[in-house]
Amino acid sequence: MKNSVYLALLAGLAGCATLPSSGPTGKQIESSAVAPKEGVPIQVIEIQSAADLPAGVVSTSPAAILPQAASTPTDMVGPGDVLDINIYEAGVTLFASSSPATAAGQLSAPGVQVQKLPPTRIDDLGNITIPYAGMLHVGGLTTAEIEATIRNSLRGLSQNPQIIVTLNQAITNTIIVGGEVARPGRLVLQTNRESLSDVIALAGGYRGNSKDLMVRIMRGDASADVRINDIVENPALDVRIRPGDRLMLVDDPRTYSILGASGRIEQVPFRRSAVSLAEAIATAGGTNPNLGDPAAIFLFRYVVDAEGKEVPRVYHINMMQTGAYFIAQKFTMQDKDVLYFGNAAANQPSKLVQLISQLFSPILTVTSAVSVIQNSNN
């Protein structure tokens, strides 16, 4: 009976097409990439020296993407701004408080008078209305230019009026900051020389971990993305912010995935701005000694070709070679990379032995127990 059970189990194993596996071997990956059943072939690049390393990601400066707005004066006004306007007159005045003399149609008595107009909002067309002067277009002017415009409009109506215009509420010379900052909202640019890092600091600083934060700068219909940590490493990314810009800080952690016959399978966030392939392999726990092949470590990545299209690339590194450990320190991981540890074809016999052992262990245990019972009965 015992022999018949063994034969039945062996027959079942012989009928299995494949043994359990965590993924393809290195040879299977290379063959399926070069001659896929569907789609176009995928280029497999052998990393054997520093010359084979892919070019690192060069962060494009927002200045090359965003339209270059001309620098504007800090006191230039536009629609939505609120002005405080004071009109000073000496001698015979036009803007005088009501009195019996003025009620009779006479001008007020000589002296220095000041007329503070109610807060004046610039309309959507950039116009304001001044008593006796009518509607004036002031959008795009500075406060000094508005003073001259009002004074000229009152010429002949008032004796040498002096005008003082100040900004009560500034809208034109502001930006909007939102997302992961301490104080989101509208921010006035006091000098119009504030950089990206200046604006983030004026908004109370960022919230969260800088390595996970990305700031999107929107100017008109264009936008550019910059990572907070990259600003520290590359000051050229700390661009000048212009009035009307909109900034949004978002939590967008960079990650890479670990698959195959490694010590662990997971999605790993970047610990720093730059992570090398050697560090990624160490984080994965290296190759599983029972399943993996150190000579078959692959990295899957999308790259942009000369035509600007995204195409898949596979990079192969053989960690059985001494030089590979130095090269892996220079290989920089990128966001959404997939690090795959290939299965070792030589491990298939050991898997068969383990499987047979697992299947036979319960039978051997039962057989041993029966033998003990029979011996005790005898």
Rank of each mutant, 00 (worst) to 15 (best):
Y6V: 14
L9V: 15
A17E: 09
L19E: 09
G26Q: 09
K27D: 15
I29M: 03
I47G: 06
S49T: 15
V58F: 09
I65A: 07
P67L: 13
P73C: 07
T74P: 00
D75I: 00
P79L: 08
V82Q: 04
L83Y: 10
L83M: 07
I85M: 01
L94V: 00
A96P: 01
S97V: 15
Q106W: 08
V112R: 13
P119L: 08
A133Y: 05
A133P: 07
M135D: 09
T142W: 04
E145V: 05
E147N: 01
R155K: 14
Q159T: 06
Q159N: 06
R183N: 13
L189P: 13
S195A: 07
D198W: 11
G204Y: 10
G205L: 04
D212H: 08
M214I: 00
S223A: 15
I228L: 15
D230N: 12
G244E: 08
L249E: 02
D252A: 13
E266D: 07
P269L: 00
F270K: 07
R271G: 13
S273L: 02
A274M: 04
A280R: 03
A282I: 07
A284Q: 02
N290Y: 09
G292T: 04
F298T: 04
E307W: 02
K309F: 10
P312Q: 08
N318M: 10
G323K: 10
G323D: 15
F326P: 07
A328Q: 12
D335H: 09
L339E: 04
Y340F: 15
G342F: 02
A346L: 10
S350Q: 12
K351F: 04
Q354M: 00
F360Q: 14
S361F: 00
L364M: 04
S368G: 11
I373V: 15
N377F: 10
